[in-house]
Simulated assay, not measured.
Amino acid sequence: MKRIFASAMLALSLPAAAVASELVYQPVNPNFGGNPLNGSHLLGSAQAQNDFKDPNASSSSFERPSELDRLTSSLQSRLLSQLLADVGDGNEGSIVTDDFAINILDDQGVLSILIEDINTGEVTQIEVDGLVPDTF
């Protein structure tokens, strides 16, 4: 029995043939050649670990405008669009909102748009030359 045990111990103590293969680096991050499906997982992990709070950011999040504000904005946009369409016919006009006063003048083919910011008093003038009505 001692002989079998000694033979077994001798066989186990002899070096065995090692089998090895080449190690190949495979990146995880898709920015460095990794699988593109890892991107959302890595981004989610990074955002979960991010505890930075921007001190300059407002504490309130975006507030959706009320239905009345959206209707008012839509009407102002429509009126301004109609005013610009009427100028092509030789008409002039103006529109005043809570924030801006817009005057549109057509002076013999020169379109002049004056935009005044009511809150700051700043005035912007846009002139477009060469507008001649189509005559057929």
Rank of each mutant, 00 (worst) to 15 (best):
I104T: 01
N29M: 02
S61D: 12
S74Q: 01
L14E: 13
V28H: 08
F5A: 13
M9S: 09
D54R: 03
L105D: 14
L80T: 10
S21G: 09
L111P: 12
V28G: 08
Q49N: 11
R3I: 03
P30K: 05
D54E: 07
G90Q: 05
I118S: 03
L83Q: 03
E22C: 08
F5Q: 15
S66E: 08
L43H: 07
R78K: 14
A17M: 10
A48R: 09
P30W: 02
F62Q: 07
D134K: 10
R64S: 08
G130D: 05
I118C: 00
V110Y: 08
L131F: 15
V87F: 00
S94A: 10
Q125L: 06
S74E: 00
I104P: 03
V123C: 01
G44E: 12
D107Q: 08
I126C: 02
I113C: 12
S81Q: 11
L84R: 15
N31V: 05
L12N: 11
R3H: 00
T97V: 00
T72M: 10
I104M: 07
N91A: 12
L79T: 11
I104G: 01
G93N: 07
Y25E: 14
S81K: 11
Q26G: 06
V96Q: 15
Q47E: 14
M9N: 08
T97E: 04
L43W: 12
A57G: 05
I104W: 02
R64Y: 07
F32Q: 04
S60R: 11
L105E: 01
R78T: 15
V24Y: 10
N119Q: 15
N50K: 00
V96A: 05
P65F: 13
A46Y: 09
Q47I: 11
R78I: 15
L80Q: 11
N119K: 15
F100H: 04
D106F: 02
N119S: 08
S66N: 01
D69I: 09
N119P: 08
S73M: 14
L10Y: 08
Y25R: 05
Q26S: 05
I102M: 07
T124S: 10
